[in-house]
Simulated scan of single mutants.
Amino acid sequence: MSRQNESTVLFDALGPKGRQRSAIASVISAVVILGILAYVASVLAGEGFFESSRWVNPLDALVVQNTWVPAILDTLLAFALGSVLALVLGVLFGFGRISRFGLTRWASAGYVQFFRALPLILLIWISFTIDGHFGFTTHTLGWSTEARRLTFLVLGLGVYNGAVLAEILRAGVAALPPGQAMAGYAVGLRHGQVQRLVVLPQVLRNMLPAVLAQLVILLKDTSLGYVITYPELLHSANIIGRDYGNSFLQALFIAAFIYFVMAYALSKLVVLVERRMRKKTAAPKAAAQLESTVAGGQAGVGVI
């Protein structure tokens, strides 16, 4: 199938008038967007946003070394730990949703439905506040304040995104052709072996882009650590803006740019992994097609 045919499977190709109207709408949309951006830039310029004096303090070498760099590292640490916890919980409760045992299915469904319904910021704040009243980790484990904040930020990120990933995994298993599992049972594999050896590898390969896209969201959600004063980017930008009152908005823009760079780099990694997965699956498909073609040709020769 050609690229042109692939792009018109779900809709009819535009005719001459349709292409003309689409081009006009695109030009009008671009003009409107540029006009809005120009207006915003003029308002910011009138407020002195682009004055170099307001950018000097947030970009000072000491501020970068003592505030921005630690904030980036703390953000990446929370992202890494939250991602690991979310993946573990996602796989665990995702397969719990499709378990043969009713109690396991109900418990997993309850976890997924409950934590998906809660706002992430509320989940982080409630758990942090409860510990603040009872002091389980602080008093019994002797954790520092920073470790305590990191713990409950990671816990909130992992529990919430784990519920989302579990639902993604359940949907991926449901979308898998039932013949795959039946083939496993046919060769004598048990249910657990079928799930581990047949279903899981295919589901993870097919759903890897969706999982990685959810991890991009998790990276941005680390900014919610602001509510418990975890020293991530948003909290650090607020500190810089408080120390340098005339550079508060500039500090927020710098933090937004850093978030954009990290999220963009992670999204490019998603695209790279997806392409590599396509290359790995393209060769077996091509080999299977070639084998069937050759077999068909040999059968035809035999008939003749």
Rank of each mutant, 00 (worst) to 15 (best):
L176Y: 02
G158R: 03
T145I: 08
T151E: 10
I124Q: 11
V159S: 01
V154N: 06
A109N: 13
A107Q: 00
V198M: 09
A109E: 10
N161K: 02
V164L: 10
E167S: 11
G132H: 01
A186L: 04
V112E: 00
I98N: 14
L189W: 06
F134S: 05
W106F: 10
Q195F: 04
V112N: 00
A181L: 14
V194P: 05
I126N: 02
P178I: 12
P178T: 14
V198Q: 10
L155S: 00
G156S: 07
V198K: 10
S108F: 00
A147M: 15
L141K: 10
R190I: 05
P119R: 11
G102K: 15
V211M: 12
T138D: 15
A175N: 14
Q113S: 14
R105F: 08
Q202T: 06
T137R: 11
M207C: 06
E167L: 08
Q202I: 09
M207H: 10
L118V: 11
E167G: 04
A117W: 10
R190C: 04
F115E: 01
V194A: 09
L120R: 08
Q202S: 03
R97T: 07
A147L: 13
A183E: 14
G110H: 01
R205T: 03
M182C: 07
F136T: 05
P178Y: 12
G110K: 01
P119N: 13
G184R: 08
F101Q: 09
A210F: 04
L122K: 04
A175Y: 14
G184E: 05
L120H: 04
R116H: 15
F136Q: 02
V154L: 13
P177M: 11
H139C: 03
G142Y: 03
G179N: 07
T137I: 14
T151P: 07
G192S: 15
Y160W: 02
G135Y: 11
L169T: 08
G179V: 13
A117T: 09
E146N: 15
T145R: 11
G142L: 13
A109M: 11
H133S: 09
Q193P: 06
A171W: 12
L123V: 02
L141G: 04
Q202R: 01
Q195C: 07
N161F: 03
F152S: 05
G188V: 11
L150K: 03
A107K: 05
Y185A: 13
S144H: 06
V198N: 14
F95C: 01
P209A: 10
I121G: 02
L165R: 05
P177G: 08
G142Q: 02
T137H: 11
L150I: 04
A175S: 15
L208A: 07
A109V: 09
W143Y: 08
V164C: 13
R100C: 02
Y185S: 15
M182K: 06
L155T: 06
W143S: 03
A163Q: 01
P209L: 09
E167N: 08
I124F: 08
G158M: 10
